[in-house]
């Protein structure tokens, strides 16, 4: 089966310097792929390239087995409908209420009755741990973590085949992070979708990822299960995980 996302020999030049150089990565159907790397390593840029928001300087991207920019406008849009993206800053529509933000992709999809949309939106709100009374708030009235959860609910609204999450648990308390991991796992079991998520949180990483890709030195340094990556003899990877482990163990000492 062809991979859901296929990045082949991607090079990206931004602001006069190379962010990616000959980067290659495949994400197979049903994988929960974690993308880790230092701040400014180009993880967000990579997600933006997968969605077609940004073009790499060179290289080929395939989405659902077809070249990203292939086909007519309607075909490209249809491909985009099959994925959901959670932006690092939420990117909620500031003029719409929480309810309308989550209902937006459903209404755009068409064919749904308003009563059905109501139920689906409220169900999504419940899934991300928000109550029905939050539905009428405006994005500016939300806390940072709530923005994340509403954005997640919006990305999940169509229960897409591919979910791109940029730091989904940043700004959430540990309990919410755990609930988030449980939610994604449950949906993954039911719907069998593919997830690519960026995270700096080792707990989320170890609880959710079936595969880990390390982005550093402008390419994918290593990819595989957490243990495989952990075992890789590369100074960056060793430092990355050692640092996190020390942080994790500090309270226990």
């Amino acid at each position: 089966m062809s991979p859901v996302v296929s990045l082949c020999d991607i090079s990206t030049r931004l602001g006069g310097q190379w962010v990616h150089r000959g980067l290659t990565l495949d994400v197979a159907q049903g994988e929960l792929m974690a993308l880790v790397g230092g701040s400014g390593a180009g993880k967000t840029t990579l997600l933006r390239q997968i969605t077609g928001l940004q073009r790499p300087t060179s290289g080929a991207i395939e989405l659902f087995g077809e070249p990203l920019y292939a086909g007519r406008r309607s075909q490209r849009f249809a491909r985009l409908r099959r994925l959901g993206m959670l932006f690092q800053q939420g990117a909620l529509f500031s003029a719409l209420t929480v309810f309308d933000n989550i209902a937006f992709p459903l209404r755009e999809f068409g064919g749904l009755h308003e009563a059905e949309i109501r139920v689906l939106v409220l169900a999504k709100l419940g899934q991300v741990g928000l109550a029905a009374q939050h539905a009428t708030l405006m994005p500016a009235q939300l806390s940072g973590g709530m923005v994340k959860r509403v954005a997640l609910a919006r990305a999940l609204a169509l229960e897409p085949e591919l979910l791109l999450l940029d730091e989904p648990t940043a700004g959430l308390d540990p309990e919410r992070s755990a609930a988030f991991v449980a939610l994604i796992r449950q949906l993954h079991a039911e719907l069998g979708f593919t997830v690519v998520f960026v995270t700096h949180d080792l707990d989320t990483l170890s609880a959710l990822a079936t595969r880990v890709a390390v982005l550093a030195e402008r390419r994918i340094l290593a990819s595989g299960t957490l243990d495989e990556v952990h075992a890789t003899e590369h100074p960056f990877i060793q430092k990355f995980f050692r640092y996190h482990t020390t942080i994790d163990e500090t309270p226990a000492e």
Partner: peptide, 10 residues
Amino acid sequence: TRMDSFGALL
């Protein structure tokens, strides 16, 4: 084979 929230709701 597969059912999402919308299918169930329907």
